[in-house]
Design a protein around this nucleic acid. Structure first.
Lengths: 207, 207
DNA sequence: CCATGTGAAGGTATTCACAGCC
DNA sequence: GGCTGTGAATACCTTCACATGG
């Protein structure tokens, strides 16, 4: 099944598997079966094997998967096998937290620049990154930054995205709680934190 | 189609519609068609009508939907029609940002308590909420708090969740980058911020 | 005439079951 | 014996097309 179109849902699960594999490697394991990985990440073993089958034969029947090899394969598929430089736009409460967040490194993503419109913030250094004036975003491509994290207020989210698109950015993670438009060539993922919380009560038992 | 099982995907979209309706109401609109809502939230009009059809007849043929009425209906379905008190566990960088985040109010969610294990943080007040010792989580039910936001390090995420379950919590939004287990009666939604970013490179054009 | 609501059709993703391999 | 990889079966979700109602 090597040369088929990959379901989006499979791509969504790959980082989950990668995370699980890295934790398992930390514990000193070398091989893992689809069953044990399933128990660890909360996805059925059928699903895991099916997902991997889209990309090739990673496992050994009777043995399982070599954790290191599989992790590297997933990193290659997700194109996380090179360190990627990212820019943060908007150094408010959330932006500052994101700057300090160590989790991005897990996936080879490195926030190397930060921008804000507030003169009070410009020049300050947070977690080793100096906050620059927002006008600097226009030259991101020259600095070999193609990935941006948007953490600005809703009202200026679209104009921020437009500017990033103009600057040659190719992928955007948007934390502003609204839809933003971008040309098809630019991938945008919007993550509205409060919205995730909003569907909790639906699933909660009465009161 | 009033009495059918609701697709999870529909439930996931309801907060998107609600957000769109509230913004549209802000602009002074009173009615909206599935077409214009579609353009606004980025979901096809077919899909929107289908989603609403699971719950009943909210619209008027030839006119569209009354924005206020539809928003209230969605709030009722999602059970966001009462203010819900939530607790935050873990007042680190991310936790502090969440405390300051105004977006939760949009959906009637109110963080009224915060807990941390670090004695240095206990007693300080952030955004009007005093940080308490983590032992206080055991009495959350008595304070009528049934919803928790977990923003603790990965290593203590599971024990934190166990403790919350013991305290009678019914819904958990987990920001720790790992799977956590809980009884079926407790709904857990895990949101790994870095993981969302991890699938961006896959969709980005070369380099 | 316009926009909703919904069966039916079509497409996508998950689960199953087992052949093949170590 | 144990575990992978995968066609087939199933379940789920989306899109379509149109009858129905204001």
């Amino acid at each position: 099944m090597r040369y088929h179109k990959i379901p989006d849902e499979t791509v969504r699960r790959l980082p989950i598997y990668l995370r699980g594999l890295m934790f398992s490697a930390e514990k000193g394991n070398e091989h893992i079966s689809s069953q044990s990985l399933a128990a660890f990440v909360g996805v059925h073993s059928h699903q895991i094997r099916k997902d991997f089958s889209y990309f090739g034969d990673f496992g050994t029947p009777g043995v399982g998967y070599n954790i290191g090899k599989l992790a590297r394969e997933i990193q290659r598929i997700l194109r996380l096998d090179v360190i990627r430089r990212a820019a943060l736009i908007g150094v408010g409460d959330l932006g500052s937290a994101l700057l300090a967040y160590p989790g991005f490194r897990t996936y080879g993503l490195d926030i190397v620049a930060a921008f804000d419109a507030d003169p009070e913030k410009i020049g300050h250094t947070i977690n080793g990154v100096e906050v620059e004036d927002v006008s600097g975003v226009d030259s991101l491509a020259e600095r070999e930054i193609f990935l941006a994290i948007v953490a600005v207020p809703r009202q200026v989210a679209q104009e921020t995205v437009d500017r990033l698109v103009g600057a040659g950015i190719k992928g955007i993670l948007n934390f502003a709680p609204c839809r933003v438009e971008a040309p098809k060539r630019v991938k945008v993922i919007t993550l509205d934190i409060a919205m995730e919380l909003a569907r909790l009560p639906y699933y909660m038992p009465a009161s």
